[in-house]
Amino acid sequence: MLHGIAAGTATTGLAGAATTKRPTRKIVGLRADESFDRARDAADDVYRELDFGSVGKAVAGTFSEKALKGLRKNPKVRYVEDDGTVRALSQTLPWGVDRVDADVLHSNGETGNGADIAILDTGIDDDHPDLQANLGTGKDFTGTGTWDDDNGHGTHCAGIANAINNSQGVVGVSTEATLHSVKVLYSSGSGVFSDVAAGIEYVANQGWDVGSMSLGDSTGSSALQDAVEYARNNGVFLVAAAGNSGPCSDCVGYPAAYPEVMAVSSTNSSDGLSSFSSTGPEVDIAAPGSNVYSTYVGGGYDTLSGTSMACPHVAGAGGQLMANGASNSNARYTLAETAEDIGLGNDEQGAGLLDAKAAVGRKTPP
């Protein structure tokens, strides 16, 4: 059995949600032919008077409960409501996207537009506001009949790789590539080798650019190895999570351990190796994976940790390169050559920490 590689969960919630006290200020709506005096005289304090012409009038202020009771009974009063709180819609720049300088790419107009990134996982939430505009097609290999996410893991990975750069939620490493949901893990977060191999074969047959695999197992499979070789030979840039068996040595899981796949270990916000990250000579590159905030099922957002979260950072950067014409081998070479040495061992960081800005800014080899 293969499993989605993630460890640790924090609070799930909608962006911008906050707990506030019930406002004490009220708005009293009056008929158009009524004087402001009706509400003004009843108020303890008047904050604002609004005249909407033939639509009506309104007075914002504070009122005693006795005054409000009388106003609600008055036929000249159209409504009494809370003077509620509104907030600016904001977008969070996740620390990992910032650390690999993907936000600089966005400022330079690099969006990944034209690349196809397949997320081989539990599916993708097909109506998430931070992903929907980037969604292409998908396929279910688990027998559920839909590639929509019924776990959350795949949606989280999708947002890291390629959430839209808009006024809400989060932003991905790439922002305008096309996301494809290849559902190879059940709602439990686990799956079988043959489904994953079928998903990889499917990605190759579609001619898509990047296959992101935040899944793995401690032992390999001949069918799985055949699939990654087939995909590599057909131009797919394959990226996989190294695994969450740390602290350990020489414990990179499969498919990350196959030479056809770029294996990604995980770092924390201090550029240290994440405590859970698998290590070994197969590690090719490191990327942020501890406490990563991203999209989640139900239109929400969540913070998760794992090499699962590190993997789609590299997938998103690969999408950026391939949108600019790089082949799968070019993309892998360039990501390794431009990685930042953060002082970890070769079996911990591989070539170094992902540097998306440097990778996309460098001309790929012929």
Rank of each mutant, 00 (worst) to 15 (best):
H3C: 10
G4S: 10
I5C: 06
A6D: 15
A10W: 15
T12P: 12
T12W: 14
T19M: 04
K21S: 11
I27K: 06
F36G: 01
A39N: 08
A42R: 13
A42L: 06
D44A: 07
D45N: 05
D51N: 13
S54W: 04
V55T: 04
F63H: 01
E65M: 13
A67P: 07
R72N: 15
R72A: 13
K73S: 14
P75W: 03
V77L: 05
E81W: 04
V86C: 06
R87G: 11
T92I: 10
L93T: 00
R99V: 00
D101Y: 00
D103R: 03
N108R: 13
E110Q: 00
T111Y: 03
G112A: 09
G114A: 04
D116W: 08
A118C: 14
L120V: 10
D125V: 07
D126N: 15
D126P: 15
P129T: 09
A133Q: 12
F141E: 14
T146Y: 00
T146N: 03
W147T: 15
N151K: 01
G154Q: 11
A158R: 15
I160K: 08
N162Y: 02
N165L: 09
N166I: 00
Q168A: 08
G169Y: 06
V170A: 01
V171F: 12
G172D: 12
V173C: 04
V173A: 05
V182T: 13
S187K: 12
S190G: 01
S190V: 06
V192P: 03
F193V: 06
F193W: 13
D195K: 06
A198V: 07
I200P: 12
V203M: 06
V203L: 08
Q206Y: 04
Q206C: 00
Q206K: 14
G207Q: 01
G211M: 14
M213H: 14
S214G: 06
S218A: 13
S218M: 05
A223N: 09
Q225Y: 15
E229F: 15
Y230R: 12
A240Q: 05
A242N: 10
G243M: 11
G246V: 07
C248V: 15
C248L: 06
Y258N: 05
S266C: 07
T267C: 02
G272W: 11
G272Y: 08
P281K: 11
A286R: 04
A287T: 00
A287K: 02
P288C: 00
V292Q: 05
S294A: 11
V297Q: 13
T303W: 13
A310W: 12
A310G: 05
P312F: 11
H313E: 04
V314S: 12
G316Q: 11
G316Y: 11
A317P: 07
M322V: 03
N328C: 13
L335Q: 05
T338S: 02
A339Y: 01
E340M: 09
G343M: 08
G343S: 02
L344G: 05
N346K: 02
N346V: 03
E348D: 04
E348C: 00
Q349C: 03
A356I: 12
A358C: 07
V360Y: 14
R362Y: 14
K363I: 02
